[in-house]
Design a binder for these strands. Sequence first.
RNA 1: GCUCGGAUGGCGGAACUGGUAUACGCGUUCGACUUAAAAUCGAAUGGGGAAACCCGUGCGGGUUCGAUUCCCGCUCCGAGCACCA
Length: 768
Amino acid sequence: MERYEPLKIEQKWQKIWADTEAFKATEEKDTPKMFIAEMFPYPSGAGLHVGHVRNFTIVDVLARFYRQQGVNVLRPFGYDTFGLPAENYAIKTGTAPQDVTKQNTANFRKQAETLGYAIDWSREINTSDPEYYKWTQWCFLQLFKKGLAYQKESYQWWCPVDQTVLANEQVENGHCWRCGHEVEKKKMKQWFFKITEYADELLDEIDNLNWPEKIKTMQKNWIGRSVGAEIDFAIASGDKATSRKITVFTTRPDTIKGATFLVVAPEYQDLNYLISDNTKDEVMKYKNDALKKSEIERQENKEKTGVFTGSYVINPATKEKIPVYVADYVLAGYGTGAIMAVPAYDDRDREFAEKFNLPIVEAELIDRDLYGTPKTTYRMRDWLISRQRYWGCPIPIAYDKEGNPHPIPEDQLPVVLPDIEDYKPDESGRSALAKATDWLKVKIPVTDEKTGETHLEEMTRETDTLDGYACSSWYLWRYASPHDEKAAWDQEAIKYWEPVDIYVGADHAVAHLLYARFWCKFFADEGYLPFREPITKLIYHGYINAPDGKKMSKSKGNVIDPLDVINDGYGADTLRTYEMFIGPVELDAAWNPRSVGGVYRFLNRCYTLCFDNKTETDREKNIIIRNKTIKKVTEDIFHYNFNTAVSAMMEYVNELYKEGAAKEDLIALAKLLKPFAPHLASEMLEHLDADDEWPKWEDKYLISDTAELVVQVNGKLRATLTIDVAELEDEKAIIDKALDLPKIKKYTESGIKKTIFVKKAKLVNIVV
RNA sequence: GCUCGGAUGGCGGAACUGGUAUACGCGUUCGACUUAAAAUCGAAUGGGGAAACCCGUGCGGGUUCGAUUCCCGCUCCGAGCACCA
């Protein structure tokens, strides 16, 4: 008898698939298509982990499932390679990030092939490849042209000793993580994408998405639309209003009569105007202290603080003179950075009023529109995209002598990231690109407004690079025509393949998934995309934790390496099937080495049934269980219930093991198994001389002649009764038969109140 | 604090629009094969009880002939957001 040797079988089929380019996808106008993809990975040096395997296998099961049904499936693969980890590694080791990336992507591909994924490898893409980021830059320029990529002064963490911007995470208790000096908040010019332009559509379209509710809610909260009003409060001189004013945003303009003071944020732009000689020192001290505090510190200390500015304003509803305070519980980045405080209706304002002995007035509510102009604000801010880092996509911009930004002409793209020796950011506060002196100089054509003549002007390149989320905002469209040299994406290919039908991932609930939606709407408006939502169905799967239920981490030493599982002899098919069997797709699951063995035993039984089947049979009963199994597995995969699909196959195999299997039974088994365990299933189908076309069930084979009737007394199971299916048509006869059972008779001695017969459930309930 | 999920045997989990709770897998126990072990195969397995039967889906109520499922009120766990006016 032959033994199941997974590694031998898997190598054989992987070679066949590679040699025949078995999963290459081409547009076929008359065939239905399905585009299925995972969130492409960052290829770290550690290679695939079990979380990747879960992610990729979900995609693969679906891709193979639809392929077996004759659907034209696109299942591409790519790598999100720009980013901090590669740069930090480069700084530490002196190895170029380009080289590290090359090694890691090659390793990832090799490992993905070891798992037998049905990938169209001709469509491999990589965000740090100039052929790719050329088009990321093109996308940037389209946004720039429409004013949706813009520069803005905004407050950043700044270390005066190192003269560099720091990320929030690089500031420890108000001090620079490098030199220990106190940091300041400093206004700096940064690049932004104007995602707020699409806030309404991004929010309103969420309800129509076939996405998990959890993700939809998170996006709604993130965008955070507030409908309210802006109201002007005139600054008072003596008891008279002046022409200067403070504009506040409120969602409760109807409470304005209860507004007994105003509060502005420490960063409020007109703060200088509000202070007087005797409050100046105190206010400036408060402001500087607030700027030094990290966001975390501000939030930790919920005790209200603030100082009186020295100014008063006139409440337009009551005409009363009310004081203006500065306090850090008001945020500069939201609304107008100023609020009217209504302590009678707002808990935070009440807390402040109580601490500073300000009046709390239970005033009447008035018409919302009386004193303000309607205004909608969003919690979502514009997307800050500039990074002072080397290993990212260069921003295709150059500056003239006055510091005005000019786009790099599209025919000069890509702006190639130059090779440099030292990747470290330095005290200039600019990325290491600032040191590439030759690269920095560029000649840009400029048209003279008066003469209309064009001349070349020497300019200096932007040294910031793009946030990696920019690279991943459009990659799904690149898959449609990954090697197109004329456009970011080919219109015909896009029209056929996109949008993505099923997208699978476990991260980036808000950022990536919101940015991709934003770009989609923008490029649809520009006429480059024939749809406004990039992802039709989203599967957001759970994490795989260590056997102890904790997160896997190197430091805890509890990491399961998927390649070890394969090489220990279980093979890729067991690993894949186990990760689908591990639990409901959306839930976290703990790795259980013993359960891996259970799945291996199942596949082993499949193999034995097929290759050592001595008890060939044509039992009538098998037709029913075969049809039932086909139906169950098919419907489960349609509903992404992979765990119960595997259970159903296990039940089927257990039955065949007991009762014997006909060839038809085995062919059906192999076909159903193929999405999960493609190597073994291919081996079985070859042996059985069958194709892999997805099997169909017939409803007429789902019904047997006899049925088990459930007999309840007061809703409790008391007996079962085997009856002929035809008997279900005669309610009276069924009930009589049930009442006649000796087990039931003893309950009915004191009389029967009523009887209930449920045909669909094959159930009789006797109420006594 | 707010929002969204969860809670079912020793464990992971099944259960269609209310209808036999615990499918499937793990573990455990017993048996077969073997000199022995592993592997494999078979049987049993929610708790209590000799049995009849009773109790069982986080807790307390409710609706119903019948509730893991629907309604009301809690507890605990997880995730996200967090002074957004």
